[in-house]
Amino acid sequence: TRVETATETAWISLVTALHLVLGLNAVLGLLLLRWQFPAHYRRLRHALW
Rank of each mutant, 00 (worst) to 15 (best):
Thr1Gln: 13
Thr1Asp: 08
Thr1Val: 11
Thr1His: 05
Arg2Cys: 12
Arg2Gly: 10
Arg2Leu: 11
Arg2Lys: 14
Val3Ile: 09
Val3Met: 00
Val3Cys: 06
Val3Trp: 08
Val3Asp: 00
Val3Ala: 07
Val3Gln: 02
Glu4Leu: 06
Glu4Asp: 07
Glu4Thr: 04
Glu4Trp: 03
Glu4Gln: 09
Thr5Phe: 10
Thr5Glu: 02
Thr5Val: 07
Thr5Met: 13
Ala6His: 07
Ala6Tyr: 10
Ala6Trp: 05
Thr7Arg: 12
Thr7Gly: 14
Thr7Pro: 07
Thr7Met: 05
Thr7Val: 10
Thr7Tyr: 13
Thr7Ser: 11
Glu8Cys: 08
Glu8Gln: 13
Glu8Thr: 15
Glu8Ala: 08
Thr9Arg: 13
Thr9Asp: 14
Thr9Met: 13
Ala10Ile: 13
Ala10Glu: 04
Ala10Ser: 13
Ala10Gln: 14
Ala10Tyr: 14
Ala10Pro: 12
Ala10Gly: 14
Trp11Gly: 14
Trp11Glu: 09
Trp11His: 15
Trp11Met: 11
Trp11Lys: 15
Trp11Arg: 15
Ile12Leu: 11
Ile12Tyr: 08
Ile12Gly: 15
Ile12Lys: 15
Ser13Tyr: 09
Ser13Phe: 08
Ser13Asn: 06
Ser13Gly: 10
Ser13Gln: 11
Ser13Lys: 15
Ser13Leu: 12
Ser13Pro: 15
Ser13Cys: 06
Leu14Ser: 15
Leu14Asn: 14
Leu14Glu: 08
Val15Leu: 05
Val15Lys: 11
Val15Asp: 12
Val15Thr: 15
Val15Phe: 12
Val15His: 14
Val15Met: 13
Thr16Tyr: 13
Thr16Asp: 05
Thr16Glu: 07
Thr16His: 09
Thr16Phe: 14
Ala17Cys: 12
Ala17Met: 09
Ala17Thr: 07
Ala17Phe: 11
Ala17Ile: 15
Ala17Leu: 13
Ala17Asn: 09
Leu18Thr: 10
Leu18Ile: 14
His19Met: 15
His19Phe: 15
His19Arg: 08
Leu20Met: 07
Leu20Val: 12
Leu20Thr: 11
Leu20Tyr: 04
Leu20Phe: 07
Leu20Cys: 10
Leu20His: 09
Leu20Lys: 00
Leu20Pro: 00
Val21Leu: 04
Val21His: 04
Val21Cys: 01
Val21Lys: 00
Leu22Pro: 00
Leu22Glu: 02
Leu22Met: 00
Leu22Gln: 10
Leu22His: 00
Gly23Cys: 06
Gly23Asp: 02
Gly23Lys: 00
Gly23Gln: 02
Gly23Phe: 06
Gly23Ile: 14
Leu24Asn: 00
Leu24Ala: 14
Leu24Pro: 01
Leu24Lys: 06
Leu24Glu: 03
Leu24Phe: 14
Asn25Phe: 15
Asn25Trp: 15
Asn25Lys: 14
Asn25Tyr: 10
Ala26Gln: 02
Ala26Glu: 01
Ala26Gly: 07
Ala26Asn: 00
Val27Asn: 02
Val27Ser: 04
Val27Asp: 00
Val27Ile: 11
Leu28Glu: 02
Leu28Gly: 14
Leu28Val: 11
Leu28Trp: 03
Gly29Asp: 02
Leu30Tyr: 14
Leu30Val: 11
Leu30Ile: 11
Leu30Ala: 10
Leu30Glu: 00
Leu30Asp: 00
Leu30Gly: 09
Leu31Gly: 02
Leu31Trp: 04
Leu31Cys: 08
Leu31Thr: 06
Leu32Asn: 03
Leu32Arg: 01
Leu32Gln: 01
Leu32Cys: 09
Leu32Trp: 06
Leu33Gly: 01
Leu33Trp: 04
Arg34Ile: 13
Arg34Met: 13
Arg34Thr: 08
Arg34Tyr: 07
Arg34Pro: 01
Trp35His: 07
Trp35Tyr: 07
Trp35Lys: 08
Gln36Ser: 05
Gln36Ile: 05
Gln36Arg: 09
Gln36Trp: 08
Gln36Met: 05
Gln36His: 06
Phe37Trp: 10
Phe37Arg: 03
Phe37Tyr: 05
Phe37Leu: 07
Phe37His: 01
Pro38Trp: 05
Pro38Thr: 05
Pro38Met: 08
Pro38Cys: 05
Pro38Glu: 04
Pro38Asp: 05
Pro38Gln: 06
Pro38Tyr: 04
Pro38Ile: 03
Ala39Asn: 13
Ala39Asp: 14
Ala39Met: 09
His40Glu: 05
His40Tyr: 07
Tyr41Phe: 13
Tyr41Glu: 03
Tyr41Met: 07
Tyr41Asn: 02
Arg42Glu: 12
Arg42Asp: 12
Arg42Pro: 02
Arg42Phe: 09
Arg43Leu: 05
Arg43Met: 05
Arg43Lys: 09
Arg43Ile: 06
Arg43Tyr: 05
Arg43Cys: 05
Arg43Phe: 03
Leu44Met: 05
Leu44Ala: 03
Leu44Lys: 01
Leu44Asn: 00
Leu44Phe: 07
Arg45Trp: 08
Arg45Val: 12
Arg45Ala: 11
Arg45Phe: 07
His46Thr: 08
His46Lys: 09
His46Ser: 12
Ala47Tyr: 09
Ala47Thr: 09
Ala47Ile: 11
Ala47Asn: 07
Ala47Pro: 03
Leu48Cys: 10
Leu48Arg: 01
Leu48Glu: 01
Leu48Met: 12
Trp49Tyr: 05
Trp49Thr: 05
Trp49Cys: 11
Trp49Ala: 05
